[in-house]
């Protein structure tokens, strides 16, 4: 079943040299699955994720032929409709918990604030504690009373995920949710996300620059280059990628097994951006 439909999404920013299009006609549909969007910095992957939630920073503008979430046309959504969607039916996890948590509020207060949107006051606190346990925080009552600076990066990111999932959204957009974390913590956070997708039947858009990680975690992968999707493929078929950019991204990674020295360097072709 289709949760999200995106057709010909474009995001434009005005510059002194005229309008600059950073997302140029992206189309995809998402069911209750894990979709990865991969690309290098500047490929437009984060702007794609933000545009879906209507969070294109001004003066940027997002347009699309179709942008529908569960049958709701997001292009014509009123502020009131957005409020009933964001943080309740669709949420976003950002890269760095240091910048996305409120530094002067305890984790507990921030979580209850999020929970209060769909629950009563008494229930909100229980939901918050239960959610902290669901993201495998060992001592939830300590974390509940802690300020963000008292937590490690991995802990903060778990608290952030807990906050985004407390309203049990149907769609979660995760923008580099694990890039600021250590590899062993990264795997734990991915397991948590994965379980939530499976248990709650959530749709997940996982945005990352790490092709290997996305390939091992997602069901389907979109590869973006210069604002366009250059290749879409099943994650299992990543090794059989056809587009030279995808192949280049895979090949330029060093491997523990070793092999090529010097590493193959990505030769960019001006035609990919056309």
């Amino acid at each position: 079943m289709t949760l999200l439909q995106v057709e010909n999404l474009r995001v434009t920013f005005p510059t002194r040299q005229g309008p600059s299009e950073v997302v140029r006609g992206v189309s995809f549909t998402l069911g209750r699955e894990r979709l990865g969007i991969v690309g290098e910095s500047g490929s437009g992957k984060s702007q794609t994720g933000r545009a879906i939630l209507g969070l294109t920073p001004p003066p940027g503008r997002a347009t699309a032929d179709r942008l529908a979430f569960d049958g709701i046309d997001l292009r014509r959504a009123t502020p009131r409709q957005w409020r009933s969607l964001r943080g309740i039916r669709m949420s976003m996890v950002m890269q760095d918990p240091k910048f996305s948590l409120n530094p002067v509020m305890t984790i507990g207060r921030q979580l209850t604030e999020a929970a209060r949107r769909t629950a009563s006051r008494g229930e909100a606190k229980d939901r918050a504690m239960a959610m902290l346990e669901a993201v495998q925080i060992r001592d939830p009552s300590r974390v509940f009373g802690a300020y963000p600076h008292e937590l490690s990066g991995g802990m903060g990111q778990r608290a952030m995920i807990a906050m985004m999932l407390i309203a049990e959204p149907d769609l979660l957009i995760a923008d580099e949710p694990t890039s600021a974390l250590d590899v062993t913590v990264q795997i734990e956070v991915l397991r948590i996300l994965d379980r939530l997708v499976q248990d709650r039947g959530m749709g997940l858009v996982f945005i990352s620059h790490d092709l290997r990680l996305v390939g091992s975690f997602c069901d389907r992968v979109l590869v973006m280059y210069a604002g366009r999707v250059v290749e879409e493929l099943r994650a299992a078929d990543l090794a059989r990628a056809r587009h030279p950019y995808t192949q280049g991204l895979l090949n330029c990674l060093p491997r523990i097994e070793g092999g090529r020295r010097p590493l193959p360097v990505l030769e960019r072709d001006a035609r990919w951006a056309l």
Partner: peptide, 16 residues
């Protein structure tokens, strides 16, 4: 060994 395993990427779908 944990570090090595983590560097291989995640295989959560099979392991859960």
């Amino acid at each position: 060994r944990d570090l090595l395993a983590a560097s291989e990427g995640s295989r959560p779908a099979e392991s859960s």
